[in-house]
Amino acid sequence: MRYFLILLHRSRILLLFILLEAIAVYWVVSAKSYPRAQFNSVTTEINGRISNFQDDFQSYLNLRIENAQLAEENRRLREQLNESLLIQNYGADTINDSVLNQRYTYLPAKVIHSSHLKASNYLIIDKGSRSGVKPHMGVIGPLGVVGMVSSVSSNFARVIPLINNSLSISAALKSEGYFGPLKWPGEDYLISQVTDIPRYSNVKAGDTLITDGRSRYFPPGISIGVVESKTLQADQNFFSLEVALSTDFANIAEVYVVKDLFGAELDTLQNPAIQ
């Protein structure tokens, strides 16, 4: 027994090394194997709290810019109010309000982590499945489209932004209605690319790109960006557009998750196998 204790004492550094490595490797393995990801939920919680703290500090620094963005958004919304509209109806028509059904609702959320300089950027927002957030929901910000929810936990959700080359959405020219897929080519987080705009269109630098009905997870008319330049594609029939994105991904704090109240109904048509 005494020899055993002496042996233990002599090799205590080696034993400590093995113990610490075992803890670390167990941590790695348990995080990689789905059913036993307990460590992972603990670190997500800690990371979420620290990100919250970091975000509070950053929000304070960015108050001025955010206030300006919110004021701009308020202005646009105020313009859509009934008070801002002139009713040109001289009593001849009947207004039937039940014709209008609410299709989209918006859930405000705070961005608590974001990256914009990596190859595959992502955001974490502080709303999850408990708030009704589900994968494939659109996410917009005060300035325009942000991205799409890719996965959710109970309190947080991971969002793939427009500046991630795994996301592609349909973008339409506000002036003419021509549309094409928007996909981030990488490199610059301010610039994205729309392809397949017909050659005979009158698209020019400065034109606005918005979401349209084909964008599916976004309401129509949300700003995506502004055309910077156009080049003819190799097939000579279509333009490829460089687009300056509306959303500043280097400074993003408040977003809205878009809930499509008719989404489930649309899914049954687009994917009949669900039924």
Binding site: L20, I23, A24, Y26, T43, I46
Partner: peptide, 23 residues
């Protein structure tokens, strides 16, 4: 060894990298 573990584990927790830095 203990401090090295704490150093690596701190990065792992903050980066959600699950023990690779600690090891």
């Amino acid at each position: 060894l203990v401090i090295a573990f704490a150093l690596g584990a701190s990065i792992d927790i903050l980066e959600e990298s699950a023990g690779v830095h600690a090891a």
